[in-house]
Design a protein around this nucleic acid. Structure first.
Length: 558
RNA sequence: GGUCUUAUAGUCAAACGGUUAAGACGUAGCUCUCUCAAUGCUAAGACACGGGUUCGACUCCCGUUAAGAUCACCA
C-alpha cells in the first residue's frame, strides 16, 4: 500500500519542482563545513532591502561584526530579499555603503563573494526548492490551497471560540487533502503555498537557550507555517534555517522581536536533523514617546535611520561609541581613555549585554561627539568637515575651499591644549558658529544690526572701541595683549579687578568681561565667541580695524 | 486577549546573599579675575509593589503591577 502512496508523493514532488534533481546531500557537499577554529564565531548580518539602514540594524550588524572579529571568526552579509512587495530598488547599495562608512567590513557577502555564494536569497531559490522537495517526499511539508478568505474564515471561527489563531491541527484543512486531489489541483494551476507539517504540541513547554537571556521557556510550535509562498519564494523562517545551516553560521544575532518565532526555527532545524546554531536576541533600541516606550520608527524618528547621523555630520566614531556603550557600559571609560583609537579591539563579550530595551539618547551621542572631535587635530577636523560638506552642504564646501588654511586656523582655536574646546558635535552646525570669521557673513550680520549690551552707555561703547582701535595689535603674546586691554578698560572706567567690582560696582561702568564683550560684539556680532585673542589673531589687524571702524561709524551716526 | 521577555535615578548602567546602592550622560549651583564651550568641585535624583526563603535580599522563589515584543503567503 505504501508503495503506491510513495509513488504518488514522488509524482507530486516532481510536479511541484520539475527542475530540481539535486538532493540535500548534494548541497551538503557543495557547502562543506568551514575550516575555522573551534572557538571562532561565524556571524552574519541579514538585512532586507526595504529602504535605508535602520539604527537598530546598525546595532545588530555591529554586535555581529564584533562577535566574529573578537573570536577570529567570519562575518558575512546576506541579503534577505524575498519580499518582492516591499523591496526598494537600490537600497541594498545604500546600506552596504553605509555599513562600510562605519567600518563594518564583511568577510563575505554580496559584493565580496565567498565560498557559500550566492549571498542574495533571491538567487538561492534552487537551494530552498531542493530542501522543500525532499520535505514533501518525507511528508514533512504539504501543499495548501487556502486563500486569504479561507484563512480569514478560520481565524474568525477561532476568535469566536476563543482559541489560538493560526493554521494548525484540524484547522489545517489542506493537511488532510488526498494526494490525488492535490495533484489534480496543482495540475489545474490553482494557486498554492507549501506549509511545514508541524508535529508540535502547544501544551508542551520547551526550553530554548539564548546566549544573552539564558533559557527561555516557551510553548512548542504547532502551527503549520508557510515555508514557500505563492510566488515560489521562501518565507523568512525557512530561508533563515536553510541559509544559516548551509552557510554554517555559529551564532545567529538578531533583534528581540524574533524570540516569539524561535520555536519555529528550532522545530525546523530538528525536523531537518540539522544542528542548531547558537542564538542571541538583542534588546531593541526604543524611544520615549510621551511616556510610552516604543521601537525607533522610521516614520516618526529621524534618528531611526543611520542616514540621519550622516546628514547631521556626526562623526562615525561617536555613533559607534554610543552604540557600543549600550552593549557594554565599561566601554565608555575605555574608549575615552584610548581617545577613540582602535575601538573594535574592545574586549567585547556578548553575554554582558543588558536585557532591557534601550531608550535612544541623543544627548549621550552628542557627548561622545564632543569628546571625539576634541581629540583630533585641526587638519583632521578640516578634512572631515570638508568631506561632510562635499556631500551634504555645498555652501560650506565653498567656504572651506576658498581658504583651507584659514578654516583650519579656526578649527584650531583652543584645540592644542590640556582641556580643548568641546563645542562641536556635528558638522552640520559648524558653519553657524564660525560664520562671523567670514567677511561676507559678517556684513550680513552687520546689516541686520549688531546689538551691544544695553546697560552700557553708547558713548562709552564708542570710546572703548576708539581706544581699542588705537592699540589694535595682535602680534604680541596673549598675556601682553590682555594687559593692554586692561589699560584701556581702566581708562574707560571699567573695573579690572573683579573683586573690587563686586564690592563697589556702582563706581564702575562695568567689569573686564563687559569691556571685552564690547569688542567681542563689534568683531563677532555676538556676545558668544571663543577666546577673543584667538579670534583677533586669525582675523588679523586689518579686518579687525575695519569691523571696529564700521561699528564706530554706525554708532556715532545714530 | 494569548504567549514570551524585561523591571536599579530623566537616560545608560555597576553591584552576583552582607556596600553609606558605584560610575557616566543630562540637570542645578559654584569655580575659572573675557563671554561661550571646556575644566575642577558640589548638589538633587533609584532598587515598581506585596509576600515568602534566609541570621541577613537590589540580588533567590512566588504573586501583583507596569512596560516592551509577538500572534502574516513581512522580514
Amino acid at each position: 500500500m505504501d508503495n503506491n502512496k510513495n509513488e504518488k508523493i514522488n509524482i507530486l514532488a516532481d510536479l511541484l519542482f520539475p527542475d530540481i534533481s539535486e538532493t540535500i546531500d548534494v548541497l551538503k557537499k557543495k557547502f562543506p563545513e568551514r575550516n575555522i577554529d573551534k572557538n571562532s564565531e561565524v556571524t552574519r548580518f541579514a538585512p532586507s532591502p526595504t529602504g535605508f539602514l535602520h539604527t537598530g540594524s546598525l546595532f545588530t550588524a555591529l554586535v555581529s561584526f564584533l562577535t566574529a572579529k573578537t573570536t577570529n571568526g567570519v562575518f558575512y552579509i546576506r541579503l534577505e530579499d524575498t519580499d518582492t512587495k516591499r523591496k526598494v530598488e537600490n537600497s541594498e547599495n545604500s546600506f552596504l555603503k553605509e555599513l562600510k562608512i562605519f567600518n563594518i567590513i564583511a568577510d563575505e557577502g554580496i559584493e565580496e563573494g565567498g565560498k557559500y555564494a550566492p549571498y542574495k536569497q533571491s538567487e538561492r531559490i534552487k537551494i530552498y526548492h531542493t530542501v522543500i522537495k525532499e520535505l514533501i517526499k518525507k511528508e514533512l511539508a504539504y501543499v495548501c490551497f487556502c486563500t486569504a478568505e479561507d484563512l480569514d474564515e478560520i481565524r474568525d471561527i477561532q476568535k469566536a471560540n476563543k482559541q489560538i489563531t493560526g493554521y494548525y491541527g484540524n484547522y489545517a484543512r489542506c493537511r488532510y487533502l488526498s494526494i490525488d486531489e492535490v495533484i489534480n489541483r496543482v495540475k489545474n494551476n490553482e494557486h498554492y503555498v507549501i506549509r511545514f507539517k508541524s508535529n508540535g504540541n502547544h501544551e508542551n513547554k520547551i526550553k530554548l537557550y539564548d546566549e544573552i537571556r539564558k533559557f527561555i521557556s516557551i510553548a512548542e510550535n504547532d502551527i503549520d507555517i508557510v515555508i514557500l509562498k505563492k510566488d515560489g519564494l521562501p518565507t523568512y523562517h525557512f530561508a533563515h534555517v536553510v541559509d544559516d545551516h548551509f552557510m554554517h553560521t555559529t551564532t545567529v544575532i538578531r533583534g528581540e522581536e524574533w524570540i516569539s518565532s524561535f520555536p519555529i526555527h528550532a522545530q525546523l532545524f530538528s525536523a531537518l536533523n540539522w544542528k542548531m546554531p547558537k542564538y542571541a536576541h538583542l534588546p531593541l533600541i526604543s524611544k520615549n514617546d510621551n511616556g510610552k516606550k516604543r521601537k525607533l520608527s522610521k516614520r516618526f524618528d529621524p534618528e531611526a535611520t543611520v542616514n540621519f547621523f550622516l546628514q547631521e555630520g556626526y562623526p562615525i566614531e561617536s555613533v559607534l561609541a554610543y552604540l557600543m556603550s549600550i552593549i557594554n557600559n565599561s566601554f565608555e571609560e575605555w574608549v575615552l581613555k584610548k581617545k577613540f583609537k582602535d575601538m573594535f579591539s574592545f574586549p567585547f563579550s556578548i553575554n554582558k549585554i543588558n536585557l532591557d530595551s534601550t531608550l535612544f539618547d541623543i544627548k549621550k551621542l552628542k557627548f561622545f561627539s564632543r569628546e571625539f572631535l576634541s581629540t583630533i587635530s585641526a587638519e583632521e577636523m578640516t578634512k572631515r568637515v570638508l568631506e561632510y560638506a562635499q556631500t551634504y552642504d555645498k555652501n560650506l564646501e565653498a567656504l572651506i575651499q576658498k581658504d583651507k588654511k584659514f578654516f583650519t586656523q579656526i578649527m584650531n582655536i583652543e584645540r592644542n591644549q590640556d582641556n580643548p574646546r568641546k563645542d562641536y558635535f556635528a558638522f552640520k552646525y559648524i558653519e553657524k558658529t564660525i560664520a562671523f570669521f567670514y567677511d561676507e557673513k559678517y556684513d550680513t550680520m552687520f546689516k541686520n544690526g549688531i546689538i551691544f549690551d544695553e546697560k552700557i552707555d553708547k558713548k562709552i561703547v564708542i570710546d572703548a572701541l576708539k581706544d581699542f582701535l588705537e592699540v589694535n595689535n595682535v602680534s604680541i603674546l596673549e598675556n601682553e595683549w590682555f594687559d593692554l586691554m586692561k589699560t584701556i578698560a581702566l581708562k574707560n572706567n571699567f573695573a579690572i579687578n573683579n573683586k573690587e567690582y563686586k564690592e563697589n560696582s556702582h563706581n564702575f561702568v562695568g567689569n573686564m568681561a563687559d569691556f571685552i564683550n564690547i569688542i567681542r560684539v563689534a568683531i563677532t556680532g555676538s556676545k558668544i565667541s571663543p577666546n577673543l585673542y584667538c579670534v583677533l589673531k586669525i582675523l588679523g589687524k586689518n579686518k579687525v580695524a575695519n569691523r571696529v571702524q564700521k561699528n564706530i561709524l554706525q554708532l556715532g551716526a545714530k
